[in-house]
Simulated assay, not measured.
Amino acid sequence: MGSTRRRPLLVPALLCVLVFFVARPSTAGGEARGGPGGDSGAGARVMRLYEDASAVERQYEEGRRQAVALWAEADRAARTRARAGQGRVAAGGGPAGAARPTRGRREVSRTESGDGTEAPASARGDSGLAAEEARARSRWRAAERRNAVLAGARRTVLARLEEARSALEAEAEASVAAGSCRGAVRLGRPAAGHRAGWVAPVGTYRVSAGFGEGGGHWAHRHTGQDFAVPVGTPVRAVGAGRVVRVSCGGAFGIAVEVEHPDGDRTRYAHLADVTVERGRRVAAGEWIGQSGTTGNSTGPHLHFEVRTGARPGSAVDPVPWLARHGIAVR
Rank of each mutant, 00 (worst) to 15 (best):
A72H: 08
A99L: 14
A123Q: 14
A134V: 01
S113Y: 08
R58V: 13
R81Q: 13
G63T: 01
G97Q: 04
T117F: 06
V56L: 02
A67Y: 00
L49R: 05
R58S: 12
D115L: 08
W71V: 03
A69M: 08
P101E: 01
S113T: 15
A69C: 03
A136H: 08
E73M: 06
G114W: 14
R135V: 08
A74P: 00
R135Q: 12
A142D: 08
D39E: 14
A91Q: 08
E132Y: 06
T102G: 05
G97H: 05
S54K: 07
G87V: 02
R79A: 10
R124C: 05
S109W: 11
T117V: 11
R105K: 07
D126N: 13
R124W: 15
A99D: 15
A123R: 14
R45Q: 15
V108R: 11
G92W: 14
R64Q: 13
G87K: 00
A134D: 14
L70N: 02
A130P: 01
A90I: 01
P95E: 04
R83H: 15
T117Q: 14
R76K: 08
A78F: 00
A69W: 03
V108W: 07
G63W: 00
R45I: 01
R45G: 06
G125Q: 15
T102A: 13
A77P: 00
R105P: 01
G63R: 00
L70S: 02
G114I: 03
V108A: 14
G87W: 00
G94D: 06
A123M: 08
W140L: 02
D126H: 15
A130N: 04
W140Q: 07
T117I: 05
A53Y: 09
A99S: 15
E73C: 05
R110E: 13
A55Y: 10
G63L: 01
S40W: 09
R137L: 12
D75C: 04
E57R: 14
A131Q: 08
G114R: 12
A131K: 05
L70F: 10
A96H: 04
T111E: 14
E107F: 02
D126S: 14
A130R: 01
R141I: 01
A130T: 01
G43T: 00
T102N: 05
R88Y: 11
Y60G: 03
R88K: 11
A55T: 11
R103K: 11
D75Q: 05
R103H: 13
Y50T: 04
A99F: 05
R103V: 13
G125V: 10
E107C: 04
S54F: 02
E57W: 07
A130W: 00
G104E: 04
G114E: 09
A53L: 04
W71K: 07
V89K: 10
M47W: 08
